[in-house]
Design a protein around this nucleic acid. Structure first.
Length: 385
RNA sequence: GGGUCGAUUGCAGAGCGGUCAAAUGCUCGAGACUGUAAAUCUCGCGGUUUUAUACCUUCGUAGGUUCGAAUCCUACUCGGCCCA
């Protein structure tokens, strides 16, 4: 499925490409989260400027709002949001389960399906693996994800085990429904969306292994890393990520869902993970935190492997909080090295001002800055070592 | 000129004898954010230190009553409104 073009001799980093119906994507790559079919505060037509590989939308959010009838009438989510590059839809598992794990009132998990309450209007909905897949076909995306049971990492072993069992069982139903939909919709082989299974198991390595083995039997295009990639204290689960990457067949795509900080991405790429998505660049941008590359990615960062996250982050980038008083009079460019004219021409003092007066242009500029940083980070990783 | 109401910590604005360094909101200062219930949330915001049911300074100014005053009284200063 993944065509490997280059491998590192020092690490597990692999550089390659994958084919989707909307085009070829160079790996490893990062997808910003456009959860509700919009890159928050930015818009989707920045793709030309930003050189995005792909983006992530969410089954759960779009099903609730604006609803699938509308998306179908719009001609699919790509058309609706005016984005012609590949899209991946997340299954909604993470959202529904995090909703329920945060408040039991918000839903209930059954073996066959999951029920949840819409936080928007309080209405009740059911989600089955089949329904999740059908919705994703209706979205018309390039890559889709099986509905999984996503537990918090600190769950008991017993709970993690049952979530693995449920995830595997649901993955089987997803695959079956996927094949049914392919047939029903008469989708040709080179037009079919890629399907990902999600490996759960929390921090229990043997459960990760069990989950991976069962999923591999079902044969997916790629496999994702389920659950949060960090523990409660925010420590990156390096051992678990490393172990899980090894479980996935070499010709399959490895998708580290929700990863992450730049240093987490570098480390995961060096473990052989191919795909990433995260809210960090856009969310932190909206909150005024800007990523700034040290030495503007002049050298390959994939060399940095066995050193700690802290060291990696210090050697790649620093962040600034544009809200801080020190920027009030800083008339230097937001980012002198940016490809985007507005990031070169607007000053930090002006961006500081925009945040102070809460004008959305501030969020937009900061998010653009961070996305450009992430995209350049991935381009740099793809240089190899 | 007469009457009347008011003056509170950057702003607005509670408080009307002790539990008040003084609610709340904003501003301000800082922090968090990892398959987005996040343009959100957290903390700080008179000073000092031994960080405490501590001390000092503060509720227009100056006095007074009281064990005790931002809160009551008197005068003054300034401001709003009403009447001349």
């Amino acid at each position: 499925m993944i065509k490997i073009k280059k491998k590192s001799d020092k690490t597990k980093l692999r550089i390659g490409e994958i084919k989707t119906k909307r085009g070829v994507i160079q790996t490893p790559f990062f997808m910003p989260d456009a959860t509700r079919a919009v890159l928050k505060g930015i818009g989707n037509n920045e793709s030309g400027k930003l050189n995005l590989s792909a983006m992530v939308v969410n089954t759960y959010h779009l099903y609730l709002q604006p609803g699938m009838d509308l998306i179908k009438k719009a001609g699919g989510v790509n058309k609706f949001m005016n984005f012609d590059k590949p899209l991946l839809s997340d299954s909604g598992g993470f959202q529904v389960f995090s909703l329920i794990h945060r408040s039991k009132k918000m839903g209930k998990i059954y073996d066959k399906h999951v029920e949840f309450k819409s936080p928007i209007d309080g209405s009740w909905h059911g989600l089955t693996p089949e329904k999740s897949i059908q919705i994703q076909f209706d979205l018309g995306v390039d890559m889709m994800v099986c509905l999984d049971d996503c537990p918090p990492n600190e769950f008991s072993r017993e709970n993690l085990e049952s979530s693995v069992n449920r995830t595997v069982q649901w993955a089987g139903r997803c695959k079956k429904e996927y094949l049914t939909q392919i047939k029903k919709r008469k989708i040709k082989e080179d037009e079919r969306p890629l399907l990902f299974g999600v490996i759960q198991g929390g921090v229990e390595l043997d459960l990760r292994e069990k989950c991976a083995k069962e999923l591999i039997k079902l044969d997916f295009d790629g496999y994702g890393f389920g659950a949060r990639p960090v523990d409660k204290e925010g420590n990156f689960l390096e051992e678990v990520l490393q172990f899980t990457a090894e479980l996935i067949p070499k010709d399959k795509l490895r998708f580290a869902l929700g990863v992450g900080t730049p240093e987490d991405i570098v480390r995961c790429a060096n473990m052989g993970w191919d795909m990433f998505d995260c809210v960090i660049p856009t969310r932190e941008g909206r909150h005024g935190r800007l990523f700034e590359a040290i030495s503007n990615f002049q050298f390959p960062i994939s060399k940095q492997t066995s050193i700690s996250n802290d060291q990696i982050s210090k050697s790649i980038y620093k962040t600034i909080n544009i809200n801080n008083a020190g920027f009030a009079m800083d008339f230097s460019a937001i980012n002198l090295n940016s490809e985007l004219v507005e990031l070169r021409d607007y000053s930090r003092a002006y961006l500081h001002h925009l945040f102070k007066i809460k004008d959305s242009l501030g969020a937009r500029l900061a998010s653009l800055n961070n996305l450009e940083f992430y995209i350049k980070l991935m381009e740099n990783i793809r240089l190899g070592d």
